[in-house]
Design a protein around this nucleic acid. Sequence first.
DNA 1: GTTAGCACTCGAATTAAATGAGTGCTAACA
DNA 2: TGTTAGCACTCATTTAATTCGAGTGCTAAC
Lengths: 343, 343
Amino acid sequence: MELTERKMKIMQAIVRNYLETGEPVGSRTISKYTDLNLSSATIRNEMADLEEMGFIVQPHTSAGRIPSDAGYRLYVDTMMEDKMREVEELKEDLLEKEERLDHLLKQTAKLLATNTNYATMVSAPSIHGNKIKLIQLSKVNLTQLLVVVVMEGNVIKNSIINATDDLTDELILKLNILLNTHLNGLSLEEISLAMITAIKQQAGAHSNIVSDIIDAVAESIRGEEDLEIYTSGANNIFKYPELALNNNASELIGAFEEKKTLNELVVKTLSDETSTGIQVYIGNESPVDTMKDCSIVTATYDLGEGMKGTIGIIGPKRMDYDKVVDNLKGVMHQLDSIYKKNK
Amino acid sequence: MELTERKMKIMQAIVRNYLETGEPVGSRTISKYTDLNLSSATIRNEMADLEEMGFIVQPHTSAGRIPSDAGYRLYVDTMMEDKMREVEELKEDLLEKEERLDHLLKQTAKLLATNTNYATMVSAPSIHGNKIKLIQLSKVNLTQLLVVVVMEGNVIKNSIINATDDLTDELILKLNILLNTHLNGLSLEEISLAMITAIKQQAGAHSNIVSDIIDAVAESIRGEEDLEIYTSGANNIFKYPELALNNNASELIGAFEEKKTLNELVVKTLSDETSTGIQVYIGNESPVDTMKDCSIVTATYDLGEGMKGTIGIIGPKRMDYDKVVDNLKGVMHQLDSIYKKNK
DNA sequence: GTTAGCACTCGAATTAAATGAGTGCTAACA
DNA sequence: TGTTAGCACTCATTTAATTCGAGTGCTAAC
């Protein structure tokens, strides 16, 4: 069966209406809602067709229609409009703020949540493949050594290690120079075992502490790799009965708190990038099981220097895709410009 | 009216039973549940008395009784038993882990949540009044300076500042010495304006960057002062209908995500300490409005050196107080021993 | 002081009936 | 051939009426 122009219009009207109300939409409503000037009877015929094609379903025999997953997909792929609404506003809100990346991302999550009324998450950029800019050792006291690692993009990690030997100032100076000459400009993956042995050799009697330090460096780089994720508006899901009831609320909230699920989401998202950087997962398309009843819209941001992260918006399937996409675009744009400014 | 021994026993039985089932408890149940060997009729008379005294209430005329806030209070104050149950287990679970404080606290929250089935929060120790142990400046590049501050208790803070002047190695060395000689061993509150002026004077031409650095130090110390709070098990509240229904779930979850409310809770808790370090807030006693329908049990831990923080467990009024208090004691004990080990 | 017995209360669960939004189909119309 | 009015039918939801039973308070007897 062919998807005529008219069918498209009706379909669009159904989706739009359902997004607004959350109620199954009937033929009479559409008959008035559109400018097609068709009677409800005609609409009914068309709707029967659309149902046969799999774009809409009836929750039960004598109810109106609601979009199926395929229906939402159709809408998202071919019927959404770029309105670029909120974007200007957004700009004002966020732009001036924070040079600290973590604060900025936290703010981003919050802003998106209040703006869209959905749950949001922002993953800190993975620094996978990111290079070491500076290693700085300092003596805290006779046996404790502070190790600070600065990475490209000014991501700072630190840890404290306990030394077995006594720490002299000369030793620390020597180690500082040793480590920096060897490791600066390298990413974690580029540090080979051979390199480490070489460094140890040069450290001579202090090879012990060198391995400890390198371990600490590796650990602090890899450390937060997994679950540095900021969330906001998790309780927005209570605004949508279809998510809040059936006690999947508990699961969802759990996912948001645990962050393990979210991390999974980030990983899967980063792996299937699109040209626009924006992906839409509807219902069963969801990369994670917990969110099979939701829709997820994600955007991948790229601050350069390998610093890529994911912004995600999680809501009911009847989410306002237009608005969400607009907002994401706006935020992406801003992150871009902030980044460029800092550069 | 006098609170006889028998009334106490009956009261205890009522509370215990209600904690378990969450259903109003009737006279017949008590008649069997206790070893008092009294008929339901007698119990009924006693219950009428207890109701008159305000310790129990009837949700409606022909229902069993449930404890009032005052009833819970009576129970907590005079009828709870120290069983020291889970504590051994706990020890195994937590002890070996993490020397990093933030990880440790996060784990603590998680452990308590899974152990008790309530929502938990752990505030990072306020480092109010905590002393600077070490300030370390390092050159990141020609115009960027890394400032690392290590506080007593090995709390590490860092930030990056942009310098207006070019940074030479000598300058940094000089500033390092200058700042450390002046500021080491001081808390934020002890740094006076006079001191800052003095330092600036000695820095001569570079007084600009000195203020920037001191600002950064102050900022990084104060920075997280507010809301470094770890939570876990927020979704446990779904296990208790009295919290999950009436849509206060949304509010509660919001509080847990926002952390602002939790922070308020921490502040208020720290201010009214008890001898045991453990406080119990029942229903309306709650320091924060959002949790008027909950009970909150908090413990204040003290790692010495001014590092005090709060552990809180939030659940329904019919929470298992005994178990919660036991768990808290266990955890406190462990934090203590871990701390002593590190010292 | 304790207990058996009984009438009474009232929320919760069950059943029955009424409502109404929406459909599919048919037949008439342009 | 496409559109539409009309009508019978379906079925979730709402409302009302009933039943059920756990639990109480009170009285009278032990």
